[in-house]
Amino acid sequence: MDLTQPTPRITPDSDERRGFRAWLPYQSTDPCCEPVAHIRAENLSIAYEGHQALRNVNLEINRGCITALVGPSGCGKTSFLMSLNRLTDLIQRCQVTGKLHMNELDVLAQTTDLLHLRRAVGMIFQKPTVFPFSIRKNLELPLREHGTHDRMRLNSGIENVLKQVGLWHEVKDRLDRPAQGLSGGQQQRLCLARALVLSPDVLMLDEPCSALDPISSGIVEDLIVSLRGHYTVLIVTHNLAQARRIADHIAFFWSFEGVGNLVEYGTAQTIFETPAHELTAAYISGARG
């Protein structure tokens, strides 16, 4: 197979939604969670200052699943995430083309309310990005911004998310202390709590464990697993073992001549045990990438 060519597409033989699925690469047929498409990308391409970073991604992400985006650096995984909550708008001369739907919402439409979109799509970055004030204020700020001002509701919301990320007992006595005094792992969990406090539908994590020590990384990973079924989780990771442990679906990206492509998408089992594309097999086995 000529690896420099864009992703070949295989049309599943019998599928009711053939019209859309016909464009999906190597779509596996046995979804593990709710087999309901939550996010659909059609021919999604992203270019920075005229240079293509991601080309013609066709992908259907199921609701409530954990989908891992894997592949070498620079193949457009983070760009893909950032197009989902339109953070790409903040990047100078970044152009996103194609179609992107979240449920019925047309994400890329000019009329889309960005503040609402971003409320529905939480995002965690590689480095913990706590804001330079207290733990309480870190969590209150997004709630207040989206219209919750009642003290009781603020407090109960904060307590709930901190319990959800297992941080409550560690920080309940120092909620008013600076968030930057927490350890790296705790900061990352606080960031997760801050994203969850807005009750998003989708949670995107961009290499959330790569800046953490193995123990903190394990805690955050367990936490991500506990989100399965409650949120649609997309996680970019370079840690294949982690992807194998936690992901229901894997999207494998590869860069062809500097342009990112989605090479293969399927259940974690399929990707790890019977990958259809030889690049995937080579990457999984450690022979490439």
């Binding site: 909550n85 953070l87 903040l90 960005l114 503040l115 609402h116 979109l117 971003r118 409320r119 799509v121 939480g122 995002m123 970055f125 480095k127 990005t129 804001f131 004030f133 700020l141 997004p142 911004e145 989206h146 960031c191 801050r194 994203a195 807005l198």
Partner: peptide, 19 residues
């Protein structure tokens, strides 16, 4: 990252500047 995470939380530009 601070700006991106503020935007990712749906904070408006004036709130991001102020807080």
């Amino acid at each position: 990252e601070q700006r991106l995470s503020a935007a990712a939380l749906g904070l408006s530009q004036p709130t991001t500047i102020r807080t």
